[in-house]
Amino acid sequence: MKLLICLSILLLSAGLFAQQPFNGVESNLGNLFRLSNAKSRSISPENFNGAKGGGGKATTGTGANASRELGQGWKVSPSVDIAPGQTYTIAEIDGPGSIQHIWMTPTGNWRYSILRLYWDDETTPSVEAPVGDFFGQGWGRYAALQSLAVCVNPGSAFNCYWPMPFRKKCKITLENIDVQKMVLYYQVDYLLTDIPSDAAYFHAQFHRTNPSHTRRTTSYSTT
């Protein structure tokens, strides 16, 4: 009788575990074996809205001249030009979901390119910082950086791997406050998936007191 009770408890526990699907957001070496119903998507100058199968189909773009003998599928649109004073919308995504990776290579003065991220119905950004400082390049010139959250590779290839969940919507913009045009190469990889009720929102703010003190704060918050 005791054996049957123990087996029943084990089966019940296994059933409860099976009823909790993996949403894919917290992927790591310890759970690579778990299957997920999350839909992976990617936004870039080749695929502005992250449409499934939408990459590599551009016929016009900043690389059109270089790829003129190669044709469609050969990085015809690897980047975008952002004029002085222009705020460019990098991504606008309907949720629920989570940003999993951002890569970008911006030209010009990185202190004059302002990155902003808005979650859900926000009118004030949760992330607002110069693009160089956000990726750990506070001196305005390339410095190799290798960490779990942020990697900056040769050629000023900025990468961040902060999981950034959102419930309704995500909007990412970059404002060029310089007097010169800038060129931006970028890719935003994200998941469309269920987000747990206890998930907080990613925040990062840049603060500076002239002439010499600069700091950046990064956090997760429920507001």
Rank of each mutant, 00 (worst) to 15 (best):
M1A: 07
L3A: 15
C6L: 05
L7I: 07
S8I: 04
A14L: 12
L16V: 12
Q19S: 15
Q19R: 10
G24T: 02
V25A: 14
E26C: 01
S27H: 05
N28V: 02
L29H: 11
L29E: 13
L29D: 10
N31L: 06
L32E: 09
R34N: 07
L35H: 02
L35A: 09
L35T: 06
S36A: 06
A38E: 02
R41I: 12
E46K: 03
F48D: 05
T60P: 04
S67Y: 01
L70S: 14
W74C: 06
V76I: 15
Y88R: 06
I93Q: 13
P96H: 04
I99D: 07
Q100N: 09
Q100T: 12
M104E: 05
N109R: 14
I114C: 01
L117C: 14
Y118V: 13
Y118Q: 08
T124V: 14
D133G: 03
D133W: 06
F134N: 03
W139R: 14
Y142M: 11
A143I: 09
S147C: 08
L148I: 05
V150T: 13
V152R: 01
N159A: 00
N159I: 02
C160P: 05
P163I: 09
P165K: 08
K169P: 00
C170D: 01
K171A: 00
N176C: 10
D178E: 10
D178A: 14
K181L: 11
M182C: 03
M182W: 03
L184Y: 04
D194W: 03
A199I: 05
F202A: 12
H203E: 14
Q205Y: 09
P211D: 07
T217S: 13
S219T: 09
Y220F: 15
S221R: 07
T222R: 10
T222Q: 08
